[in-house]
């Protein structure tokens, strides 16, 4: 589904990702782990086509994602529909005046009929349990509510791959449990999940694979999530715990 070969990204003067190789199969659930500033967010942005590699190759389901390819608007739009991104700061992801419009934004663009749009919106609202927020203003919601609305808006596009950037950040324990359940359900429903996090307690049992990025911006280990997370010496050496 996703393949990175020798991908290097630079930002200003220094590297933020160095020679990253990564292969993710359809339906996998992968955790991206690493200390602050190691390039986790950049990697996730790269997967969504917001950041482009300086060197190396990124292939999404046999399509090479290159600047030239993304200039083709139809290709780019299809690509963005297939891979959804939950931003770290939900504030930046919400720009509609009402929650309902926010969720309907994507489906409306896809040329679905109004009934289909309405159904998708209602399904997403029910899935996230945000019925009460339907006519509220996203800007004034709490952090947890904003996260739910943003996820609902992404899911409404029905992406095949879901990329989550630190989704547990700033949430209360109840909300973290809720989000864990949703991620599990989505993965069981066939969605490929990629998630950066350091909130290990709440994501137990969600991921099979972990990718560890070191402070030198390189992938230092890829393997079973369970094994890696229990290798305390390794995690300590990588400044993760």
């Amino acid at each position: 589904m996703i393949e990175l070969q020798g991908v290097t990204c630079t930002y200003g003067d220094g590297d933020v990702l160095t020679e990253v190789d990564l292969r993710i199969q359809r339906g996998e659930a992968v955790a991206i782990i690493g200390p602050n500033g190691c390039g986790k967010s950049t990697l996730l942005k790269l997967l969504n086509g917001i950041v482009l590699p300086r060197k190396g190759r990124y292939a999404f389901d046999a399509d090479d994602i290159t600047p030239e390819r993304l200039k083709d608007a139809t290709f780019a739009k299809r690509f963005h529909q297939r891979i959804g991104f939950l931003f770290q700061n939900s504030d930046t992801q919400l720009f509609c005046p009402v929650v309902h419009d926010e969720i309907a934004f994507g489906p409306r663009q896809m040329g679905l009929s109004e009934e289909q749009v309405a159904r998708r919106v209602e399904d997403c609202i029910e899935l996230m349990g945000i019925g009460k927020l339907r006519n509220r203003v996203p800007y004034h919601l709490s952090e947890g509510e904003k996260r739910k609305v943003a996820l609902a808006a992404v899911l409404a596009l029905n992406p095949e791959v879901l990329v989550l950037d630190e989704p547990m950040n700033g949430l209360d324990p109840r909300m973290k449990h809720f989000l864990r359940e949703i991620i599990l359900s989505l993965n069981h429903g066939g969605k490929t999940i990629l998630c950066s996090t350091h909130d290990f307690r709440y994501i137990d049992g969600v991921f099979r694979t972990a990718v560890v990025i070191g402070e030198d911006h390189r992938v230092v280990r890829v393997g079973s999530y369970h094994e890696i997370i229990n290798d305390k010496d390794f995690l300590r050496a990588q400044n993760i715990i």
């Binding site: 942005k45 969504n48 917001i50 739009k77 299809r78 963005h80 529909q81 959804g84 991104f85 931003f87 700061n89 504030d91 930046t92 992801q93 919400l94 720009f95 509609c96 005046p97 934004f105 994507g106 409306r108 663009q109 896809m110 040329g111 800007y139 808006a153 992404v154 596009l157």
Partner: peptide, 27 residues
């Protein structure tokens, strides 16, 4: 970030471009 969010969710035809821009600048 907001512009990127708009771009990622602009997967088809946006009939309310001014409204989207208004939402971003307003926020």
């Amino acid at each position: 970030s907001m512009l990127y969010a708009l771009k990622l969710r602009s997967v088809g035809r946006n009939t309310g471009k001014t409204a989207s821009l208004g939402g971003i600048a307003g926020t």
